[in-house]
């Protein structure tokens, strides 16, 4: 069986990939809503020209957002923790798939929550990441309740942690 090869999304996807309703999984004024905002930055620290689109997934939801002037904004329900069949425990988190021109396939990362310190410490995925880089996977509080900041750096000193899937 030959798998269908990936190709880049190219620069011109904005008109097609974010129809109404797809950019949030919950109303912003819902008490369970979390607003996640951040930038997608390249190796020079510039926001990615022509933008990127991101898909955020947890067991109970998925949404897709795009960057405008480098900035994305997703409204999601805070996910529940997960226990995998093998017994591994995962803290509340979202998987992120990022697409942008210049890349033939998606970059895969995760975002964890800053108010889950204890669950994050025992999270089976974070424990596979070198300790010094773990904080890069945790969103930052903004001072505004239920609003978090999470930047994705494709390269550089604080390059985000990316994952490969077997």
């Amino acid at each position: 069986m030959i798998l269908t090869p990936a190709q880049t999304c190219g620069p011109l996807f904005g008109f097609a990939m974010t129809p109404p309703d797809i950019t949030r999984t919950v109303a912003e004024d819902d008490p369970a809503a979390v607003v996640l905002e951040g930038m997608v930055l390249d190796g020079r620290g510039d926001h990615v020209d022509y933008g990127a689109f991101l898909e955020l997934w947890s067991r109970e939801q998925a949404c897709r957002v795009r960057t405008l002037e480098g900035r994305f904004r997703a409204v999601v329900r805070k996910p529940e923790p997960v226990t995998l069949p093998g017994g591994n425990r995962l803290a509340p988190h979202l998987s992120i798939f990022l697409f942008t021109r210049g890349l033939a396939g998606p970059l895969v990362t995760k975002v964890y929550f800053p108010d889950e310190e204890q669950a994050n410490r025992s999270d089976a995925i974070l424990r596979q990441v070198p300790e010094a880089r773990r904080p890069l996977l945790i969103a930052q509080p903004t001072g505004v309740e239920r609003h978090l900041r999470y930047d994705i750096r494709l390269q550089g000193e604080r390059e985000s942690v990316f994952f490969s899937i077997d």
């Binding site: 880049t8 390249d42 190796g43 020079r44 510039d46 990615v48 020209d49 997934w57 947890s58 067991r59 998925a62 995998l84 069949p85 093998g86 591994n88 995962l90 998987s95 942008t100 021109r101 210049g102 890349l103 033939a104 970059l107 895969v108 089976a124 995925i125 596979q128 990441v129 494709l154 390269q155 390059e159 985000s160 942690v161 990316f162 994952f163 490969s164 899937i165 077997d166």
Partner: peptide, 26 residues
């Protein structure tokens, strides 16, 4: 690194990815 695009060199992460089993996705 989409070899056709001049922006790839600034976008392909330089650190090796951390490998995860697909069960650890949703």
């Amino acid at each position: 690194a989409d070899s056709n695009s001049s922006v790839s060199t600034l976008r392909v992460p330089l650190a090796a990815p951390v490998h995860l089993d697909k069960e650890w996705f949703h």
